[in-house]
Write a protein that binds this DNA or RNA. Sequence first.
DNA 1: GTAAAACTACCTAACGTAAGGTAGGTTTTT
DNA 2: AAAAACCTACCTTACGTTAGGTAGTTTTAC
Lengths: 212, 212
Amino acid sequence: MVVNFGANTAQFKETSKGFMENTVVSTKDKILDISQDLIQKRGFNAISFQDIADLVGIKKPSITHHFASKEALGIAVVQRYRNVFSIALNRLTNDETVTAMQALRFYFTPYQDLGETGDKICLCASLAGEFMALPADMQTEVAHFFDDHLNWLEGILAKGKKSGEFNFNETPKDLAYLFIDALQGSLIVQRATKNFTQLDRVIASLTERLKS
Amino acid sequence: MVVNFGANTAQFKETSKGFMENTVVSTKDKILDISQDLIQKRGFNAISFQDIADLVGIKKPSITHHFASKEALGIAVVQRYRNVFSIALNRLTNDETVTAMQALRFYFTPYQDLGETGDKICLCASLAGEFMALPADMQTEVAHFFDDHLNWLEGILAKGKKSGEFNFNETPKDLAYLFIDALQGSLIVQRATKNFTQLDRVIASLTERLKS
DNA sequence: GTAAAACTACCTAACGTAAGGTAGGTTTTT
DNA sequence: AAAAACCTACCTTACGTTAGGTAGTTTTAC
């Protein structure tokens, strides 16, 4: 299973007939892809309909045909992002053959993919950085993203501790805080300092600690 | 010693005669204070000269009398912020009576102060969130902020390990990454989720680990 | 000591640009 | 033929910035 959280390379989509078909990506999806990409690079308030339209290859007012407002577009981008994670993480949780460490390692991969871009961070970290300047409904979506991930992490850490796979002193919830904060912070800081080994070192620190 | 990194309460300034006198804060300092405050809340691209002027109590074009451009104002804000930390952290490093743990605890206080505001994050984390949309000279200042802090943290952690005060397996540099990323990430995430215990729990996790 | 000159700190007015968004017509697809 | 996709043209608002001017203060010159 490949899930691309950062780059915009959606090449397949499920049709209404329920089959996976090789299709041309719709303009609507292109708008979502490019908007997400631009927000991850520059933030929500620093991008414009004009920027998006130029990259999609349509005229500015045509965006309004697909999304009623910039806020509506922003909400759609975050909802899709949340949903991609939700599906992938639920699949991991429901698969009994996947160990806690394997699940955790899978959870790291989108962060690692983003780190390798050199100019992108997590969509919701970007939005959280300008949180107070966001429309209320976008704030809610961003908050839910972090709550989703904190709950999933807490569950995986608790499962690993219960099975004896992990060994730590904190509560699973407190360790979940540390994990998500360190991962998100790492992407933000390493993009600025251009030291692209930082995320990998942080992941090593976090996982090493689970074994002690 | 009290250093206020987040709130804008500069009440004293050194006069040309070299004495500390109780003075009215200059308009230029007010602009810096309010700009910093607004960036920490909303980011650089989401604030305008009009926002700043309204809060300072002057007209919009008067800001350009003190700062030639928005970029120049932004650079001045970050440079002052960096300088406040530089002075405080150097003082800690040079004081032989301060233990590594005391220095670390002091380092946490500005993060804790910011966490208590509920709506502000570190200035440079806010700017790093919209890093690719920042003028080049501002990017450089932001990068230097993180390098400053990483170097200081690495030094303190190395000092504590050498003296036997701290006990950890990672290199001091790798642990410095974890510390700054977790602290910065924590402020960002907890503002969005409104769970204001998160930073304290993360600091507890980080410090607990130094003792093992 | 005093008057001219220069400087500081603002102001009003207005500029060109770009933002998000709307109205209504045209092309493309089904 | 109908619906969806996209266009041109335009609107209002707001942006950073510039120009030019007015007090009040400080510096300079005689």
